[in-house]
Write a protein that binds this DNA or RNA. Structure first.
Length: 826
RNA sequence: GCCGAGGUGGCGAAAUGGUAGACGCGAAGGACUUAAAAUCCUUUGGGAUUACCUCCCGUGCGGGUUCAAUUCCCGCCCUCGGCACCA
């Protein structure tokens, strides 16, 4: 071995050995117990790898290497989430085809990831933008369609004017597009949806998206986010008759206890009901208001500070509890997509209260708060009281609490057929069609009457054509592609559809579906493809999915708490329901990595010029240093700021470790002192790896290196054990020392994880902290077997302790074996 | 507004009822060197005292439980993240 630690040479050498030898291949036929460790696969951006990527990848690599050494057959794959808008936007700007730029980015990412020495099974690499992958994405569309879980519907949808495409609810942030941060507007369009709402509750033996959360080991905060996003609420549906019309309005409420104070109804302006109930007198007002609302952006509508707006329809509904006439208004604070798009309004809701005040609509009170002072104000309609209380002005229900009243009122109205219990959810079906080019084509064709037909399975894949203009026009770029609508293909498909009887004889196919699928569809099932990545006959075989799945440990950023993680659960549950999978949750254990901030504490960004390039760190300090540094920065799941000083500190640790290996390596028996530190380290590293507490695992190994630095000669067995536990963190250096100084022939990667011997952890002498009234007053070093009486009487004799006991009476003695000797004095 | 995470030296952080600040960075001093770098050693929360023994204060703030609280309980403050007119 060389005199100095040459990371460049060492790392290149071992990476070649690992890659060429394919030593991390996960065999399908191994008898060992399986363990599936998965990273959220990256979008290969043209900016290259970010230092945030190796944080998660190092953690999973440590776990994978650790588990292999513990006898597991570890599946640890890597692939590319390669469809998506950035490549397409880049194409619009530069005319470089997205496929070209994406494949170039993948090449860069591959080189960068491989330069970090991760133990991926590269034979399982998948790339979502290649036909052998996306033909199965298309298969999933067909699978969902055939089971009634994919459907086409005209609905108000989120439209981004800048990206020229529709967006899923999950992709709208504060009324702005998740990607380009421009305003999102509402449009009525016919789009494809996946019926994710069908999987909220349990059905058959498939756990729902809600109850399934109780079966998986995920961060509680992520589970809570998913529950909130699904937004289950339990209430009642109440019918309101409309005066003079043979029509009823059904309204959802969680506050049936306030029904007696309901004085008006508010309907969403988009509701189809609006035109039917508007009287001739009010037509002008209402139409004007509806038009104005339609022009507003999502952001304007969400503006919370704004005054309530609205228009009177001229119609009246009848309160089912009191029979009173209730004017029906329209206002944009009522959401068309939730419940029935209508609410009954009263004085006990802040929004309704505001609306009534603004338009002079009469209000009534039906709830009394505990506080008398408040009650005076509430009674006089000076303030809104939206909380629960005691019923008043509610006939026979007076005196009940809100909770009691809700049940009784629902029964009472239920008997008259005017109300029933009802559960509502915020989660909507997933809108998956996008008017963009760089995505998986939807396997559907249309005829001259605009009827759609699912393509037969043998027509898959529908290849993405290359003869397209990327400039977004609001119409999908694929629409005008000539090769996409090749007459021969269309004719063949038409014949197939006609011979199967799906298509009437008199119709003709005119076009393919030109929308592509949301890229989240591609990433909803990739964890399954890794289990059987080359299968030409299925997205993955049942046997291999049973063998490898579910993912045992999934690691990625917390930004995917709803989008990807919810969609992937939905896909898994759909497959489970139809018998493809023996499990209904894709990720048994999930952990998030914290964000890495720039040295200035801000987010890394090109415009701030504070981005750290992992390539430069690898070149200057080495991959092992980068890996260990990122693990040493702090708790894995917390955000933390980069520090080049910290990088150098970790590099010094590896330098010192290297120098330890240059000392004389001797066969003689190690001393008890070094064995005590060694075995303590083995124990702690094992425990801390299992809890993903890599920072403290490394601290302990630093202590060991510091101890070894003090020795003249290094016992062979000590260095051997050290390299074994260091190898998951710093695999190149560990291999080098294992093969060089320690003289082994085989890779360290498949050696057995060392056991620690508890006998070295027990010290002959222990130090007692001696406390008087809980304050430290001295230390007592004594044999570990010393009895309580002996410890307490010896501790009492310590000079300083004596001083604090002088003139006081001992009222209690405290004894914690091996730790505390204490006296409570008065 | 609601939900979640967090607040400990000059800095990143340890310690989940038992000696607060392990480990690392930074800083100061020393050894080696012609010198520097590298390396090695020592010191390093604040204050009093300098007898270097000891005492007081100290984990966002205010209370409480306990012999003992960063840790448990109650009430606040601040920072960051998510959701947000969901009736």
């Amino acid at each position: 071995m060389k005199e100095t630690y040459n990371h460049t040479e060492i790392e290149a050498k071992w990476q070649k050995v690992w890659l060429d030898g394919k030593i991390f291949r996960a065999p399908d036929d191994s008898a060992k117990k399986k363990y599936y460790v998965l990273d959220m696969f990256p979008y290969p951006s043209s900016a290259g790898l970010h230092v945030g990527h190796p944080l998660g990848y190092t953690a999973t690599d440590i776990m994978s290497r650790y588990l292999r050494m513990n006898g597991y057959n570890v599946l640890h794959p890597m692939g590319w989430d390669a469809f998506g808008l950035p490549a397409e936007n880049y194409a619009i700007k530069t005319k470089v085809h997205p496929e070209k730029s994406t494949l170039a980015s993948i090449t860069t990412f591959t080189r960068q990831i491989q330069s970090l020495g991760f133990s991926y099974d590269w034979d399982r690499e998948v790339t979502t933008c290649l036909p052998d992958y996306y033909r199965w994405t298309q298969w999933f569309f067909s699978f969902l369609y055939k089971n009634g879980l994919a459907y086409r519907r005209k609905a108000p949808v989120n439209w981004c004017n800048s990206c020229n495409t529709v967006l899923a609810n999950e992709q709208v942030e504060n009324g702005k597009c998740e990607r380009c941060k421009k305003d999102v507007i509402q449009k009525d369009l016919e789009q494809w949806f996946f019926r994710i709402t069908d999987f909220i509750e349990d059905s058959g033996n498939t756990n729902g998206l809600l109850s399934g959360l109780d079966t998986i080991d995920w961060p509680e905060s992520t589970k809570i986010s998913q529950r909130n996003w699904i937004g289950k609420s339990e209430g009642a549906e109440v019918d309101f008759e409309i005066e003079g019309l043979d029509e009823k309005i059904s309204v959802y409420t969680t506050r049936l206890d306030t029904i007696f104070s309901g004085t008006f109804l508010v309907v969403a302006p988009e509701s189809p009901l609006v035109m039917r109930i508007t009287t001739t007198d009010q037509k002008k007002d209402v139409e004007e208001y509806v038009k104005k609302t339609a022009l507003k952006t999502e952001l304007e509508r969400l503006e919370l500070e704004k005054e309530k707006t609205g228009a009177f329809t001229g119609s009246y509904a009848l309160n089912p509890a009191t029979g009173a006439k209730m004017p029906i208004w329209i206002s944009d604070f009522v959401l068309a997509g939730y419940g029935s798009g209508a609410v009954f309004a009263d004085a006990h809701d802040e929004r309704d209260f505001e609306m009534a005040k603004k338009f002079g609509i009469p209000l009534k009170i039906s709830l009394r708060p505990e506080n008398d002072e408040l009650w005076e104000k509430v009674k006089n309609l000076e303030v809104c009281y939206p909380d629960e209380g005691t019923l008043v002005n509610s006939g026979e229900f007076d005196g009940l609490t809100s909770a009691e009243a809700r049940t009784k009122l629902c029964d009472w109205l239920g008997k008259k057929g005017m109300a029933r219990p009802k559960v509502n959810y915020k989660l909507r079906d997933w809108l998956v069609s996008r008017q963009r080019y760089w995505g998986a084509p939807i396997p559907v064709v249309y005829d001259d009457d605009n009827n759609h037909y699912l393509l037969p399975d043998d027509e898959l894949p529908v290849l993405l054509p290359h003869d397209v203009d990327f400039i977004p026009t609001g119409e999908s770029p694929l629409r005008k592609s000539v090769s996409f609508h090749n007459p021969e293909d269309m004719k063949r498909i038409e014949e197939k559809l006609k011979s199967s009887g799906e298509m009437p004889k008199e119709r003709h196919l005119t076009r393919r579906e030109s929308d592509t699928m949301d890229t989240f569809v591609c990433s909803s099932w990739y964890m399954l493809r890794f289990m059987d990545p080359k299968n030409p006959a299925a997205f993955a075989s049942k046997e291999l999915m049973k063998k490898w799945g579910p993912v045992d440990l999934y690691v990625g950023g917390a930004e995917h708490t709803v989008l990807h993680l919810l969609y992937a659960r939905f896909f898994t549950k759909a497959l489970h329901r139809y018998g493809y999978l023996p499990y209904d949750e894709p990720f048994a254990k999930l952990r998030h990595q914290g964000m890495i901030l720039a040295e200035d504490g801000q987010k890394m960004s090109k415009s701030l010029g504070n981005v750290i390039n992992p390539d430069e760190v690898v070149e200057k300090y080495g991959a092992d240093t980068l890996r260990c540094y990122e693990m040493f920065m702090g708790p894995f799941d917390q955000k933390k700021a980069w520090s080049m000083g910290g990088v150098e500190g970790v590099r010094k640790f590896l330098d010192r470790t290297y120098r330890v290996s240059l000392k004389p390596i001797v066969a003689e028996k190690p001393g008890d002192d070094i064995l005590a530190v060694l075995h303590k380290t083995v124990k702690m590293v094992k425990e801390h790896i299992e809890e993903l507490r890599f920072n403290t695992a490394l601290s302990q190994m630093m202590i060991l290196t510091n101890e070894l630095t003090k020795l003249e000669k290094v016992p062979h067995s000590v260095l051997e054990t050290f390299m074994l536990i260091l190898s998951p963190f710093s695999p190149h250096l560990a291999e080098e020392i294992w093969n060089g100084a320690l003289g082994h022939k085989d890779s360290i990667a498949f050696e057995s994880w060392p056991e620690y011997d508890p006998k070295y952890l027990i010290e002959d002498e222990v130090t007692y902290a001696v406390q008087v009234n809980g304050k430290l007053r001295g230390e007592l070093i004594i044999g570990r077997d010393a009895e309580k009486e002996e410890v307490l009487s010896r501790a009492k004799e310590l000079e300083n302790v004596k001083r604090h006991l002088e003139g006081k009476t001992i009222v209690k003695e405290v004894f914690v074996p091996g730790k505390i000797a204490g006296y409570v004095v008065k």
